[in-house]
C-alpha cells in the first residue's frame, strides 16, 4: 500500500555499529541532541544565576577588596525600603505603559491603513523604510537622535524656533527629557506594532469580513466582532513582547541621557547598571537583579499563557 517504501532503501547507512548505533538509539538520542544546548545553558545561565542568588544575601563590594560578608535579607530589605527604588520602578512602569499604549494604538491605526496596500508601487522598499527603525542599532539611533535633539544645531529645535516658540533643551531639561526619550522609543517600536497589527489582520478570514459587510455592520462592530475576534491573540502576543522589551530599555537611555538629567530618565535597567558597574556594589545589585528576574519570569509566564490560549483555541476550531 505504502508507496514510500521502496526496495532501494535510499538512506541505508553503511556504518551501523559501535558508537553511532548507540547514539542512534531512541532512548539515548534525545539526550545527545539536547546536550550541547544544555551545556551552554548550565555554564552561562544556571551557574551564574545561582551565583547571583547566593551573592544577593551577602554584603559585597568589588571596590572594597574585602571578602563577602553574609548579611541575610539585608540587601532585599534595604532595596525595598529605599524610596529611590520605588521611584525608579514606577518611572519604568509609567514608561512601559505610555510607550506600549501609544505604540499599540498608533500601530493598529497604521496597520489598518496598510492593510490594503497589496498594490502599492514599491511596497517592499516602503515597508523596509517603515520597519527600519526597529532593526537600527539602538546605540546608533541614540546617537543620531542626539543630533536631531541638539539645542543649538538640531533640526527639531530649529523647526520649533522658526515656528516662533522658545527653544527646548530636549535632553537636558528634566521636564522634557522623559518625553523626548519616550518619543524615540515610540518611533523605534511603533513599526513593530504595525507588523503585529498586519499579522492580526491577515489572520481574519475574508469570508467573515464579506459577511459582515453584507450584514451592514458598522466599522466599529466589524472591528470588534470580526477583526478583534480573530486577531486578538496575535495582538496580545505583540503587546506582551513589546511590554517585556520596553521594560528592558537600556541602550537608548545609556546613549541619550545616561539616566539624567537628575533621575528624570532613570529606568530600572539603568539603575542596576549604575549600581553594579559604577558603584561595584555587587551584593545590593545582585538582589536588585533577582527582583528584576522575578518580574521577567512573571512576564514570561503571561506570554506562555497567551500562547497556550491561542493553541487551545486553534485546537477547538
Amino acid at each position: 500500500m505504502s508507496l514510500a517504501v521502496s526496495s532501494r532503501r535510499p538512506f541505508a547507512s553503511r556504518h551501523r555499529s559501535g558508537l553511532i548505533a548507540f547514539f542512534g538509539r531512541r532512548e539515548v538520542l534525545p539526550a545527545v541532541l539536547i546536550c550541547p544546548v544544555l551545556l551552554f545553558f548550565i555554564v552561562w545561565d544556571t551557574i551564574p544565576t545561582l551565583w547571583l542568588l547566593g551573592l544577593s544575601f551577602y554584603r559585597f563590594s568589588l571596590t572594597s577588596g574585602r571578602p563577602p560578608i553574609f548579611s541575610g535579607l539585608y540587601n532585599y530589605t534595604s532595596i525595598l525600603n529605599d524610596a529611590e527604588t520605588w521611584f525608579d520602578l514606577s518611572r519604568t512602569f509609567i514608561f512601559v505603559l505610555l510607550a506600549v499604549g501609544i505604540e499599540t494604538v498608533a500601530g493598529m491605526l497604521l496597520g489598518l491603513l496598510f492593510w490594503r496596500s497589496d498594490r502599492l508601487p514599491g511596497r517592499r522598499v516602503a515597508l523596509t523604510l517603515l520597519f527600519a527603525p526597529m532593526v537600527v542599532t539602538p546605540v546608533a539611533a541614540g546617537t543620531f537622535w542626539r543630533l536631531i535633539y541638539d539645542p543649538t544645531f538640531g533640526i527639531l529645535d530649529w523647526f520649533i524656533r522658526s515656528l516662533g516658540f522658545a527653544p527646548v533643551r530636549f535632553l537636558s531639561d528634566a521636564n522634557v527629557a522623559f518625553s523626548a526619550v519616550l518619543a524615540v522609543d515610540v518611533w523605534m517600536w511603533t513599526p513593530f506594532m504595525v507588523l503585529m497589527a498586519l499579522a492580526a489582520l491577515a489572520s481574519v478570514p475574508k469570508a467573515e469580513l464579506e459577511a459582515a459587510e453584507i450584514d451592514r455592520l458598522t466599522w466599529l462592530q466589524r472591528f470588534r466582532l470580526v477583526i478583534l475576534y480573530h486577531g486578538k491573540f496575535i495582538l496580545m502576543l505583540g503587546i506582551l513582547l513589546r511590554t517585556i522589551d520596553a521594560f528592558k530599555t537600556m541602550d537608548l537611555i545609556f546613549d541619550m541621557t545616561y539616566g539624567g538629567p537628575g533621575t528624570a530618565t532613570e529606568l530600572v535597567a539603568m539603575t542596576l547598571f549604575r549600581r553594579a558597574f559604577e558603584d561595584f556594589n555587587m551584593g545590593s545589585s545582585s538582589a536588585l537583579a533577582v527582583i528584576l528576574l522575578l518580574i521577567s519570569i512573571a512576564f514570561t509566564v503571561t506570554f506562555l499563557y497567551v500562547l497556550y490560549l491561542r493553541e487551545r483555541k486553534a485546537a477547538l476550531a
Binding site: W44, W51, I244, M250, F273, F277, S286, L292, L293
Partner: peptide
Amino acid sequence: LMFLLLSIRMLPGSAAILPVYLM
C-alpha cells in the same frame, strides 16, 4: 526547558550580564 530558555531573553540586559560578569 522552553520556558527557562525564553526567560533568559525576557530579562533586562544588565540583570542578565551581572552574574556572567562576576563569573
